[in-house]
Amino acid sequence: MATLTTIAFDADDTLWHNEQFFRMTQERFTELLADHAERAHLEDRLLAAERRNLGHYGFGIKGFVLSMIETAIEVTDERVPAAVIRQIIEAGQEMLGHPIELLPHARETVESVAGDYTILLVTKGDLLDQERKLAQSGLGDLFDGVEIVSDKTPEVYARLFERHGQGAERAMMVGNSMKSDVVPAIEAGGWGVYVPHGLVWALEHAEAPEGHPRFHEIESLAGLPEILARLA
C-alpha cells in the first residue's frame, strides 16, 4: 500500500459549525409561511426545490435562499407578500454574516498533522462565503492548498490530489459527509475518514462503505492522529 502523503479536510461541519445555521433559518422560514402550509409540507417542498436547483445554483447559502423564495411563491400560489420575501432575504444575509465557530479539536488536529503531510482544504459552496469563513477561522495559514469546488466527485478528488500531492492512492479525505467527503474519495482511490457531526443535510446522506480497507470512522477529529499512526 502506497505511503500516505496528503490529507484533505472538509470545512463546513468538519472544522467549523455550518448546518445549524441552515436549520435555524429553515425554522424561521416555516414560521413565516405558517399561514399558508403545514411545516412538514413546507419542508418537503423546500427540499425538493433545493434538489431541483443544485444544477442551477450549486451548493451554499445563496442557492438555499433562492430555493426558499421559490418555495414561498409556489405554496402561496404566487401571492406571497413582499414583506415575507424581504425577511427571507434578510435571513440569508444574516447567515452570510454569521461568525465562525470552530468545532472541538479542529485547530490542534490540523496543526498536529501539518508538519508531516501536505494539508489541503477541500470545500464546496459559494466562493465568497467559503473564503470569508476560512479567513475568519484563523486556519488558513495551516493549509498548503485550498480548493473550493462546485461539487465533490471521484473525478474532482483525483484531479486535485494529483495537482497538490502524489495522487489519490496516497491521499486521505476527512469530513462529515459520507456522500461528499468519504465515498467519492475512496472511489477515486484514496482513504476516506468519516467524522460524524450530528446535523446532516438530507441531500448529503449515503451508505457507509463498511468493510472497505480504506474507510475509517472516528468520533471526533481528535482520533485522526491515531489512524495516521497506524497507517504510517
Rank of each mutant, 00 (worst) to 15 (best):
K62N: 07
H205F: 14
V113S: 03
S220Q: 06
H17Q: 14
F21W: 13
F9P: 00
I73Q: 13
P81E: 13
L47E: 14
A202I: 03
V156M: 13
V195S: 02
P196Y: 08
Q136F: 07
T153G: 10
D13P: 07
H36C: 08
D35N: 15
E111A: 13
E94D: 15
F59C: 05
T25K: 09
W16K: 05
I89Q: 10
G165Y: 01
L42Q: 12
L33C: 15
A82H: 11
H56A: 14
D126C: 02
E219K: 11
N176H: 04
Y117N: 04
P99T: 14
L139W: 00
H164D: 09
A83G: 02
F22Y: 15
F22W: 10
L160K: 01
L15D: 02
R79F: 11
E19L: 04
L96T: 03
E155H: 10
F21S: 07
I186V: 05
V182W: 00
E27D: 15
D151L: 06
V174E: 02
D12F: 03
H36A: 12
E210F: 06
A2P: 15
L96F: 07
F29S: 08
L128M: 13
F29I: 12
E162R: 13
M178Q: 06
T71F: 08
D12E: 08
